[in-house]
Each structure stands twice: as structure tokens, then as C-alpha cells.
């Protein structure tokens, strides 16, 4: 093997990741064990935040503002997008801090650096599953019966994960380089949630804003979650979904490229 100043090719990076898959599993397992070992009610804490936000949004936007609810309880409408949003937010935050949190794995040993943001996915998938279980309980409580599209739910996880990982790679690369990103991130997340279909339905967006709205990479994953959970009452608009999937893919690929470019300096700047 030749060590040179040049960046590795994408194929070489993929091969290296594949050879390191056992390390990825062990790193993910470490994060899982650590998150749930110290607190018995760890899972309940994971559900507390989206649960509280959902109740507040349902009160403000459903009860006070009386926004359209597609014939389902507003709590269920919000929760069906809040749970995937929580996944996005979790992956973005944890992948973003993964380089700083594991700095000895960067400065004292070589391993494919992509493993660190990647290893944040499984633990957040578990949280996602727990959130969906909470959603199922809420739906049972309100007597909502899911229709056949709910079977397609696993398919919605793929675009969600790609967008979350893309954003996570961008924030990991930038956080290692610029310390002030840490202060910007919470505001970006808060802003992102307000311009995404979490507290309201995409049907509310007026026609002249729809082309812009469709550029938000989170519109497609969130609406796909909602449509599969709420069934025929929540119609998907391909003019929103397809451009949004496109920007999502763009975010992912540029995230990989940005990470590859900046990871070369990680050991020197940490």
C-alpha cells in the first residue's frame, strides 16, 4: 500500500469501509450499551422529548390555530413526523460530534473515519423503533387503524437515513474544523423543524411557495412517513416528493465528498 498526499478514491473508501464492517458493528454496540446501561429508563427519556414537543405543537397548531388535520387527531398527525424528525436530529447531532467525541481514535490510531458518524445510525434506529411503538400506542388510544401503506414504512427509512447521514457528515466535517458550528447547530435544527412538515401538513403550503418548499430534503422522508402511517387521508404530491428526494441525495453525496476532503486534516486540527 502506498501512502501519498492525495485523497483516496471513492471506491477505495468503500472497500475500506467494507473491510472494517466488524469494527462498525462493535462501535455501534458500544454506543448502544453505553446509552442504556446507566439508566433503566433510558428508553423513556428518549421518548420524553418528542412526546412533549408533540403535545405542545398539537395544542398550538391543532387546538389554537385549527390547522387542517386530515381527519386524524392532531397529536397523531404531529407524532407521525416528529418521530422521524427526532431520528434526523439525533443522527445529525451525534454524527456531528462523533469526531470530537472520539478524538483519540483519530489522533492515536488509523481507522476509516467514516465509521464514526456511521456508527451513530444503529442506536438512533433503535430510538426510532421505540418512537414508532409510542406512536402505535397513541393511535390505539385514539382508535386510529393504519391501512396497508403502513407496510411500506421500512422503505421510508432509507431516504430518511440518507438525508440524516448526509447532514451528519457535513456537520462532522465542519465541527472538527470550526468550533463555532457547535453553537449554530441547535438553531439550524430548530429552524429546520419549523420549515419542514412536522407541526403542520404539506397541504398547507401555497402554490407559489411549493417549488421552494420542495427543495427541503426533509420534506420527502417526513411526508413518506406520514403517508404510510395515515394512509389514504394523507395524499403525497410527487411535485414535492421528487425534488426533495433529489436534494436529499445531493446532500448525502456532497456530505461524503466534504467529509473525505476534511478528514485528511482531522488529526492535525484536533
Amino acid at each position: 500500500m502506498r501512502i501519498t498526499p492525495q485523497m483516496p478514491g471513492l471506491a477505495a473508501m468503500a472497500g475500506e469501509l467494507w473491510r472494517a464492517r466488524e469494527t462498525l458493528i462493535l462501535l455501534s454496540r458500544r454506543d448502544l450499551l453505553v446509552r442504556y446501561r446507566r439508566s433503566i429508563i433510558g428508553l423513556l427519556w428518549v421518548l420524553f422529548k418528542p412526546g412533549m414537543s408533540t403535545l405542545i405543537f398539537a395544542f398550538v397548531f391543532g387546538r389554537l390555530a385549527k390547522l387542517p388535520d386530515h381527519g386524524v387527531p392532531y397529536v397523531v398527525l404531529v407524532l407521525s413526523a416528529m418521530i422521524p424528525w427526532q431520528f434526523f436530529s439525533g443522527v445529525l447531532t451525534e454524527a456531528g460530534s462523533s469526531i470530537l467525541a472520539n478524538h483519540t481514535l483519530i489522533t492515536k490510531v488509523y481507522l476509516p473515519r467514516l465509521l464514526l458518524p456511521l456508527s451513530c445510525i444503529p442506536v438512533n434506529l433503535l430510538d426510532l423503533a421505540a418512537g414508532l411503538a409510542m406512536l402505535a400506542l397513541a393511535m390505539a388510544w385514539f382508535g386510529c387503524v393504519p391501512q396497508w401503506p403502513v407496510l411500506l414504512l421500512p422503505l421510508a427509512v432509507l431516504p430518511l437515513s440518507l438525508v440524516a447521514l448526509g447532514a451528519g457528515l457535513w456537520s462532522a466535517a465542519l465541527l472538527a474544523r470550526f468550533a463555532d458550528m457547535k453553537n449554530v447547530l441547535p438553531y439550524l435544527l430548530q429552524f429546520g423543524m419549523l420549515v419542514s412538515p412536522v407541526a403542520f401538513s404539506s397541504s398547507l403550503i401555497p402554490d407559489h411557495l411549493r417549488p421552494w418548499y420542495a427543495l427541503n430534503p426533509m420534506v420527502a422522508p417526513l411526508d413518506l412517513f406520514r403517508a404510510s402511517i395515515l394512509g389514504s387521508s394523507y395524499a403525497l404530491d410527487p411535485a414535492l416528493i421528487l425534488p426533495s428526494l433529489g436534494t436529499g441525495l445531493l446532500l448525502f453525496f456532497t456530505g461524503v465528498l466534504a467529509f473525505r476532503r476534511l478528514e485528511r486534516d482531522f488529526a492535525d486540527v484536533l
Binding site: R2, I3, T4, P5, R264
Partner: peptide, 13 residues
Amino acid sequence: CRITPPTSGYIDV
């Protein structure tokens, strides 16, 4: 160890 890349030159390992 490949922890940091060279600025120029190369190393065969």
C-alpha cells in the same frame, strides 16, 4: 500509521 497524510512524497508499506 496513516493517522495524518504527508504533504509531499510517499511511503510504501
